[in-house]
Design a protein around this nucleic acid. Structure first.
Length: 500
RNA sequence: GGUACCAUGGCCGAGUGGUUAGGCAGCGGUCUGCAAAACCGUGUACAGCAGUUCGAAUCUGCUUGGUACCUCCA
């Protein structure tokens, strides 16, 4: 475990980087908005999944105890904000003639599967909105008691205008309430609201609405924004360290959450708001509503017409980490292919570092200093608002060093080797979560012991062929192994093989 | 229309008022039976115009182009 370091985080609330100071020393409470489970996870979902995973890994590596809460939205998320807006999950259930909770279960499991493939840690707690109706009703009551909400035709709405008298609605998203009201598009069936800026805390269910719960106001269901206020408070307390999510959730979702927290508890409840940027495709946001998304499954199998090939989960992870989380990242086959090759080189070095030969005698001072400096640069980059692209660029410096030592053009001692090894173990694998998928967390069951023995036998045959300059035989062995997905590289010290 | 943000070499993508980001591709070389890999060398990039400055791709203004949010979205 690395010693504690100062970590800077860009806080959307202040629009600047701030030094992270935990509310409770040594502990981090992190809440991240999870998916609404009415469809397959797409490349866009991988961004927050991986970004906050790296954040969690970094905090843990630096000695913090992290409670990572990421919810599953399984109720309350409507197609639009009008009274006639249909619940996304109910709609999907109707289309597929299934129970809403069958939809929820199906896509929750598929989401888990995709996140596992991307080598993300599961959250410490993964609460569902439908399991926290009581908590949500309690918050509605609280806000009503404070006079910051009103009941209208069985539904309860947050009174944004009243709230704005004493608080700044728009503090997080940087919006101005008057602009919002005058510029809001007119939606159908908003007659129950006093103002277009108001948002639902509780909605009365129409006769055909399946997902409904009793409440003091009507049989109905909670508003979308309410679940995060309820679940973050329940599991992380009235005040939590970090709340993360996609930039597209900043408004209205997080703005409303902030307003709800403030109205109910008298404080915003979140110290640092983090927002990851979007992944774009041809310069445009990738999203369900735009229909231009690629699901993670399609990406992993190559089954989408714009994909030139399949891309492994690790390639996707590396691709995402090569850009800063607050920048947009544009998808292209070329960029993914570049990522695939870069990752391969890095992971090969991660393997090779373990077998480097070290010099017993004194090593040039410069080399040791250089390695120490690279190490320092990597930590500095990661602690500077999670600058993974910079960390990766320094990691590639270590890759070059490993290869030079392997080639014999550089000499290091045992101390230097230990530092290099620790960087690959703790940073490449530990914090960035980049692992060789054959042996990695994915658990692909390759019986390496048996395979190793068999291939070495074959390679011994080839060695004999090479020694007698029987190139035809030696090349045939190499070609046949390649056809089986085993690559051969000849080096000075013999042949190496890898599973491709 | 309102509010933000962005524009970097063939592609992706960092970054800073003056010194090499990095990855991928390309080119030249080393190594090698060949191949692969690796290593070495190699790019005078920062949308345009004007200004501030000893010096700007980095600051300011304008112009152009693009994106996001204001409906649901990671």
């Amino acid at each position: 475990m690395e010693k504690a370091r100062e970590i800077q985080i860009y806080n959307t609330l202040s629009r600047s980087k701030e030094v992270f100071e935990p509310i409770t020393p040594g502990k981090v409470g992190l809440y991240v908005c999870g998916p609404t489970v009415y469809g397959d996870a797409h490349l866009g979902h991988a961004r927050p999944g991986i970004t906050y995973d790296v954040l969690v890994r970094l905090f843990r590596h630096l000695g913090y105890k992290v409670r990572y809460v990421r919810n599953i939205t399984d109720v309350g998320h409507l197609e639009n904000d009008g009274d006639a807006g249909e619940d996304k999950i109910e709609k999907k259930a109707r289309l597929e003639q299934l129970e809403p909770m069958e939809i929820v279960q199906t896509y929750t499991l598929r989401f888990h599967d995709a996140m596992r493939k991307l080598n993300t840690y599961p959250p410490s707690i993964e609460p569902r909105a439908s399991g926290h109706i009581i908590e949500q009703i309690a918050i509605v009551k609280d806000i009503l008691d404070k006079g910051l909400a009103y009941i209208s035709n069985g539904s309860v709405y947050f009174d944004v205008c009243e709230y704005s008298r004493s608080h700044n609605y728009g503090a997080l998203s940087g919006r101005n309430l008057e602009d919002m009201i005058s510029n809001t598009r007119v939606l159908e069936g908003q007659d129950d609201k006093h103002s277009s800026a108001d948002f639902a805390l509780w909605k009365k269910a129409s006769a055909e609405h399946i997902m409904r719960w009793p409440s003091p106001w009507s049989d109905g269901f909670p508003g979308w924004h309410l679940e995060c206020s309820a679940m973050s408070a329940k599991y992380l307390g009235d005040e939590l360290d970090i709340h993360g999510g996609g930039m597209d959730l900043m408004f209205p979702h997080h703005e409303c959450e902030l307003a709800q927290n403030t109205a109910a508890r008298g404080k915003g409840g979140v110290k640092y708001w983090m927002h990851n940027n979007m992944i774009t495709i041809n310069g445009q946001k990738m999203g369900k509503s735009l229909g231009n998304f690629i699901t993670l499954d399609e990406l992993f199998t190559g089954s989408h017409k714009i994909l030139e090939q399949a891309y492994s989960p690790m390639t996707v992870r590396f691709f995402i980490l090569q850009a800063h989380y607050r920048s947009t990242l544009d998808f292209s086959n070329e960029a993914l292919q570049a990522a695939e090759k870069g990752l391969k080189r890095m992971l090969q070095a991660a393997k090779d570092v373990k077998n480097l030969k070290v010099a017993a005698s004194v090593v040039e001072k410069g080399v040791a200093d250089e390695i120490q400096q690279i190490r320092e640069n990597i930590y500095t980059a990661l602690c500077d608002d999670l600058n993974t692209p910079i960390a990766l660029s320094y990691l590639f410096d270590t890759v070059r060093i490993v290869n030079q030592v392997k080639d014999g053009t550089m000499i290091i001692g045992a101390g230097e080797k230990a530092v290099l090894e620790s960087l690959f173990t703790n940073i490449t694998d530990g914090v960035l979560g980049l692992v060789d998928e054959q042996t990695g967390a994915d658990g692909a069951s390759v019986n390496t012991k048996v395979l190793d023995g068999v291939i070495n036998m074959v390679l011994e045959e080839r060695k004999v062929a090479k020694a007698t300059k029987d190139w035809a035989k030696s090349d045939k062995i190499r070609d046949d192994l390649k056809a089986l997905g085993i690559g051969i590289k000849d080096t000075k010290d013999g042949s190496e093989w890898t599973l491709e």
